[in-house]
Write a protein that binds this DNA or RNA. Structure first.
Lengths: 249, 249
DNA sequence: TTGCTTCCGTGCGTCACCGTACATACAGGG
DNA sequence: CCCTGTATGTACGGTGACGCACGGAAGCAA
């Protein structure tokens, strides 16, 4: 189930082969073709902000190789990651489901490509395509599960465990044991101070579970890190898998 | 906008007139009639647990006069309310949208009636009724917004403000300035110790914002309580309103 | 009255995390 | 080589909430 065939590098080489977004690949051929015809492929750069809460969503994105972080924004500079979206997901679903405004900030955590579609075009396609509807309901349900789990996690679990969870999830999304992620960024995701992350990360490094230097993080002991993390990891992970498992209910 | 025409009592008299669930009343007449034909009306008692996380959902409920609390369950006895559903909402949507398992515990906070429908019947009706689909997407989106806001709130805001918010939301859902709610119950909702609630509630009472005794809570100074609460109140409140505002996008 | 249950209040030591400030260390460009 | 910016490390008092334990008070029933 968990094959990490090779250590992917952090740059574009990992995305050389034209992989399709896994949500889209779950669609029947004709529906997918019609949707893809409306998409264009864009390159997203790390740090780029795609949505800001309250803003009208004008494009939907299906990541291919990039990783998007969903940050709930509180007053001040406080943020909290309520979900992350990689190849297995999409952002902007609320444009078809709810009022067409973003609930959270969507920021690119790792650069890469994505299929992008205009909001109005997507909405029209959504209306006529049953398979697309099923996909979206299911995925929204998965996002909700993620948000709920993260709410619980950030309420009850200590920082060190939450950090471990966060790193493991990033690993899964990127299919790589090493990736770039500064303490500062993690602090925003976890809703804590940067120094808090530094302290927790030091602890994990002292236990030989990870190593890092100037943002380059490597997971050394995957099993050990899972032990140090909270159960939330497995729950969110499984949910992601389940979300994709049987799209046809 | 905010009319609290009369102080409703805590018992059944407030529900004497046959009010319809507001989600259902948003449906076109024929669709609603067909759905209602499949429903039966049940009386839900306070404390009753309708769903438990992971369990298969066998019935969908549309509250009429009762109030349902959605509690995310962590290990141990820890719980955290990630949303509450009154006349303006429903529970069990995931049976049609996602995998048919409950994400959270659903417990009756205030006794009352609800329209109930069998899961399979609902799913079938959902498939054929476009207006019902729109309603559900929108409402799920609203639930997601609620969950996100609560995640932020419980991460960043102090207990006293969160308690104030929680009381205000309960007030809005019940359309009544007085209701029954023990410190113990609030502790479960807020994910804190019972003594924590006692302390925060004392503080609010000393400020003459509320009064309470043996579970009977009364809001004395609505404006003052809003000032003591965090902005999350307005966000969740508005979202609820917006969720209902224009169902036809 | 007694007894029981439910609900609320207090006290105390502990702890994770906060806000702030300052100190190092590495990396790349000039 | 310096210089500058980014990334990481350390230190310290403050505080909100925790866990636990016990005390009191209101309601109910026999």
């Amino acid at each position: 189930m968990h094959t990490h065939p090779s250590i992917f590098s952090d740059d574009d080489r990992a995305q050389a082969r034209p992989v399709l977004n896994r949500l889209l690949s779950g669609l029947p051929d004709d529906d997918r073709a019609r949707l893809l015809a409306l998409c264009d492929t864009v390159r997203l750069e790390a740090g780029q902000v795609l949505y800001e809460p309250g803003q009208t969503v004008d494009h939907i994105y299906f990541p291919v190789g990039c990783l998007i972080s969903l940050l709930a924004v509180a007053e001040g500079r406080m943020t909290l990651e309520v979900g992350s979206v990689g190849q297995e997901g999409m952002i902007g679903a609320s444009v078809a489901l709810g009022h067409g405004q973003a609930l959270v900030r969507a920021v690119v955590q790792r650069a890469g490509r994505a299929s992008r579609i205009d909001a109005a075009a997507f909405r029209a396609e959504f209306k006529r395509t049953a398979s697309l509807q099923r996909l979206l309901y299911r995925y929204t349900d998965t996002l909700l599960a993620q948000a709920i789990q993260i709410a619980v996690c950030s309420r009850f679990h200590v920082l060190e465990a939450r950090l471990a969870r966060s790193l493991l999830i990033t690993r899964d999304r990127l299919q790589s044991e090493k990736f770039h992620l500064t303490h500062e960024f993690l602090a925003h995701a976890l809703g804590v101070r940067r120094v808090g992350v530094t302290k927790a990360a030091s602890a994990l490094q002292n236990q030989k579970l990870i190593s890092y230097s100037r943002g380059n993080i490597e997971i050394l002991d995957s099993a050990g890190l899972e032990a140090a993390s909270c159960r939330c990891y497995e729950l969110v992970k499984d949910d992601g898998a389940l979300g994709m498992a049987n799209v046809f209910l």
